[in-house]
Write a protein that binds this DNA or RNA. Structure first.
Lengths: 246, 246
DNA sequence: GCGAACCCTTGACTCAGATCAAGTTCAGGA
DNA sequence: TCCTGAACTTGATCTGAGTCAAGGGTTCGC
């Protein structure tokens, strides 16, 4: 794990797709970041950040899955973002967290102290530029998800989620997104339900239905094989070209 | 209507809350913007921009209401953003539109040719900073709305929408957000349904129910009086402090 | 090996919101 | 003034997903 990858900072040749910032391999900046960098580990189920907390750090996920969630007083919860390795956490310029950040699996975060990170940002416009770009991507993803939550059936919701996770997972290994893909679901049925605005029973039933209908194959509860990605996209109600979640 | 307000650009004393950019009253920038500025009018129902179109301009809504919508092949549509006067349209750095922009009422837009606007942005870091801030606000609003779409009942959804529109409308006139507020709904029942992930019949029924229960008063179909904003917030399922839609 | 704690599945029943089908209201035009 | 059409309301019925309940499979610690 070299420095570039480790920091989730990289130039275009970086193997991680969603970089926190693109420092264009500028050595000075990397050194500056080294000084304010530290790691933290979290256990599955732990809340990394509570909504309303003062943010001490920004950073990116090194390994594991975290999620942004909102909870109503009566306990209804909605996941509003999924944080996979290399995803960025935190809002430069915002002192307080807007959402709970929860570790869905064990998580290792690469953190930067917020204040110095923000200072660096102000001095390096292309970093601010990159952050704007990332934020726009997140916004597109959020809006794409609004269609899923507002208008899709339970079956379509499940297929949409599987296609996102499958695409994301597979894109690290494969070129193109056609034919057969295989991946492990990093979410419990309950977490899937919270993301999709469903109950865990409905998620379970629809997973069984997709299996019965040959859209997916399941080995154990988490290991998923999609024989035809096109078929899955079709079940998700998306156009074949697949504009889902950047 | 002075230049500052007209452009939806302003310093902190600007009466419009959601400014396109904060030029800090810098005269040079205002002049630059004047040169690339033009107005366009659109009729209710007209699509300003089709998803996938090349964006010729960015700009802000001067009057009227527009909406960002997504449509599935079978016609199901979901509104993913509401554009009220002074809201910004367009993504600097993105050449193609991701969503349809539809005029919900007659709309006047104040447009800036995209390329020169982007050039100006690159040269003026604080404008880029302001755009990042705006985008983060939009992202928060989108995520807030994901909770509404995923977890709220029809009645709560309607109350949430009314509280957003009421807050927005009233905030231009009042200090604080307590007690009685009065406003005109700028949306048809169908547009409300598309925003809330409901059918127009359900919207109509729930509006009637809220009226019957004294949460709102209706004069005609669009003129709404909310006797107690706190009560409305309560119906929306939000905490009294009201973190809804920035 | 056994119990406990999770995570997941499945069945039976319920219900909120969708669908289908009439009406009503109201503004604008002939 | 009446006609027309768009926007809206209301009723009857249906249905997809929620709720409640029971049970299976794994993993972990004792």
């Amino acid at each position: 794990m070299n420095k570039t990858l480790d920091l989730s900072i990289g130039c275009d040749s970086c193997p991680i797709k969603h970089r926190a910032v693109c420092a264009r391999c500028d050595a000075d900046e990397l050194e500056t970041l080294e000084e304010i960098k530290y790691y933290r580990s979290f256990e599955a189920g732990q809340t990394l950040i509570w909504s309303g907390d003062r943010m001490e750090f920004v950073g990116s996920v090194v390994s594991g899955i975290a999620s942004l969630t909102q909870t109503m007083e009566d306990g209804r919860t909605q996941m509003v973002g999924l944080l996979l390795p290399s995803d960025f956490v935190g809002r430069p310029g915002r002192e307080f967290a807007s959402y709970d950040v929860v570790a869905t699996t064990d998580v290792v975060m690469c953190c930067f102290r917020r204040k110095p990170f923000e200072n660096m940002m102000v001095e390096t416009p292309h970093v601010a530029q990159r952050l704007l770009e990332m934020t726009l991507d997140e916004l597109d993803a959020a809006r794409e998800w609004m269609l899923v939550l507002g208008r899709k059936t339970a079956r379509e919701k499940i297929a949409s989620l599987l296609s996102i996770i499958g695409r994301r997972d597979a894109s690290l290994k494969l070129e193109g997104m056609v034919g057969r893909i295989v991946f492990d679901l990093p979410l419990t049925r309950e977490a899937m339900a919270d993301y999709l605005g469903l109950t865990l029973e409905t998620v379970s039933r629809q997973m069984s239905a997709l299996k019965r209908d040959g859209v997916i194959e399941l080995e154990g509860k988490r290991h998923v094989t999609v024989p035809s990605f096109e078929r899955l996209m079709d079940e998700a109600g998306d156009d074949a070209d697949g504009g889902m979640m950047a």
